[in-house]
Every structure is written in C-alpha cells, then in structure tokens.
Amino acid sequence: MDLLIDFAISLARNVVLGIMMGSVYALAAMGLALLFGVANLINFAHGEYVMLAMYMAYFFSVTLVIDPVVSSIINIPLFFLIGLVTYFLFFKRVINAPPLSQIAVTVGVVVLLRNIALVIWQAEPKAPPFTIFSASYEMGPITIPLDKLFATIISITSLILLYLFLERSKFGTAMRAAADDVDAVSMMGIDTGRLFLLTLGISMMLVGLSGSLIMMYQAVTPTSGLLFGLLSWAIVALAGLGSIRGIYLAAVIFGLADALASGMWDPRGREIILYGLFILILWLKPRGLWGRR
C-alpha cells in the first residue's frame, strides 16, 4: 500500500515537472517551427543555437552575478542580433535552395558552433551557480521549485504574446500567410526578404529565451545542442506545422515523456524514450497531430 502511495506521489511530481519542462521546450520548438513553416528554412543547427543561448545565460549569470532567468533580458536582443548576423553569413545564400543545401550549410554551422563552445567553455558541464528563486512552493506532498514555476509562467506568457503578434499585427498576418503560400504574399507586395529576416529574428529571440530558461533544469555541455535540436524537431513533428497551441501541447507531451523517463526509470535512458517516440511519430503520423501540411 505504501509502495502504491509512493508511486502515486512520484508520478504526480514528475507529471508536474514534465508539464513545466514541456512549457520551456515549447519555446525552442516554436522558434524552429516558425523558421521551418514561414521561411521554409531547414535549420539543422537550431539545437546548437539553444546550446549557445544556454552558455550565454551561464556566462551572464556568472560575470554579472544575475539570475539565469534575468539573463534572458540580455539574451533575447542578443540572439536577435546573432540571428541577423547568421542570416547574412550563412542563411541568405540558401534561403531558396533545395533542402539538401540548407541541411549541408546548417550542418556546417553545427560543427562551427559546437566547437566554438568547446574552445571557450571546454567539455565539462556548466550550470549557473545560484538562483534567486531558490524557495519552493509546497502543494501537499508535491514540491514545486519556484524558479521552475517562474520559467513556466514566462514561457507561457511569451507564447501568448507571440500568438497575439501573429494574429493581430500586420507582419504577423503576413507571416501566417507566408506559411501557406509564399508566392501569394509576395504578390501582395510584402517584401519576403524582410519577412524572412524578421522570422529568423523572432525565432532566435525564442531560442535566446528558451536557453535562459532551460538553465533552470540542467547543465550545458557543447553536445547539448544535439539533444535540444532533436527534441525541437520531434516536437514539431508531433505537432505538425500550423498552430502555437499544437506546438505547446506536443512540447508538454515530450516534457512529460522526458520527466517520467528520467524520474521513474533512469536519467540516462531519457533519450531512448524521447528519440524512440520521435521515430515512431515520423512513421505513424508524418503530418503531426494538428498539422495543416
């Protein structure tokens, strides 16, 4: 009987943790989905940008003695800029190229970013030394760390803001239209080059924010990019392109899978579950659950 109660408590804890983790993953995945859906750009290096954002969060929290969550205030505009620089360095030449060229160039970016991280921060995992939200909130037997709760709230708020931007603003409408038919958008007299640039910028801002928030959960190494890249693609595959709500739900599903696998089985086995799930989705639901295309 006690065993059953222990199990139930552990399950409940991990479910809560999974939902919170998923909320943060949703930001990274949303950045990928925007770029892939609107600009039709396959960014294989997406995870490496997330990794870089995690390192920047670590860097700011150490040098400026601020909380990693607060570091997002710097990370968001910084990654907007990094997005612009990257665009002119690498992406501009392949924006209308066949998928293979895009994959090739962005795989090159993977090599570059991963090893720049290795040069600067070495291979040992880095984690921020402290957080100002060290307290936690007790809900019966379940403890909710405040820093993670706070990350979840920021994440959901940002997604709502993004939703409002896409629904209400002129550029947002154009972005949604471009996701359906780029030619129609350029016929409407909208500069698609600028539109893609803005999309990349927003995608990178989401990356910058998600990097800061993921630091609430785990340390970063130069190979973290692989995990968050694959995870983002997996979430996009499950959701399908087309809706923020779909991405959020898919991210929560993966967050739950992650938390349950790590917490109730073996932390080293989480990738078996996550990537196994990913491959199964690709086989069985190639358009995702809520995808329009």
Partner: peptide, 15 residues
C-alpha cells in the same frame, strides 16, 4: 524523406 529521414537516422545512433 529529406530532413525527417536524416533526423530519424541520427536519433537511432543516440538510442
């Protein structure tokens, strides 16, 4: 196909 095949094969390695 394409990116999805590439990602699935990469996933297999890590699994």
């Amino acid at each position: 196909k394409e990116v999805w095949y590439a990602l699935a094969s990469l996933g297999l390695v890590l699994i």
